[in-house]
């Protein structure tokens, strides 16, 4: 048992965001492909990233590269 209180973590509880039907469909498609261990997951993810402005960011470029390299290896 701890004799000092542990700090309260932030955001243990945050309510789910309401997603637009379009976004929900993209997420379901990605999750399904991923859950089925389908290699098209990578293609699908890259396709989605291509459509997003985050692709322009360094983070987005790195993620895209990682998905391509790691998942298609």
């Amino acid at each position: 048992m701890k004799t000092k209180p542990n700090d309260l973590k932030k955001r243990t509880v945050s309510l789910k965001k309401e997603l637009s039907p379009e976004l929900e469909k993209i997420i379901i498609a990605l999750e399904l492909a991923e859950a089925a261990d389908d290699p098209t997951w990578a293609e699908l993810a890259v396709l989605v990233l291509n459509d997003m402005k985050y692709l322009d960011s360094a983070e987005g470029q790195k993620l895209k590269k990682r998905i391509r390299l790691e998942m298609k290896s």
């Binding site: 976004l23 993209i26 990605l30 990233l49 997003m52 790691e70």
Partner: peptide, 17 residues
């Protein structure tokens, strides 16, 4: 998609990756 939705999707893809 709104910028918030894009960010959300980006985060989800990152988590999955």
């Amino acid at each position: 998609m709104t910028p918030e939705e894009e960010l959300y999707l980006f985060q989800r893809i990152s988590q999955m990756a």
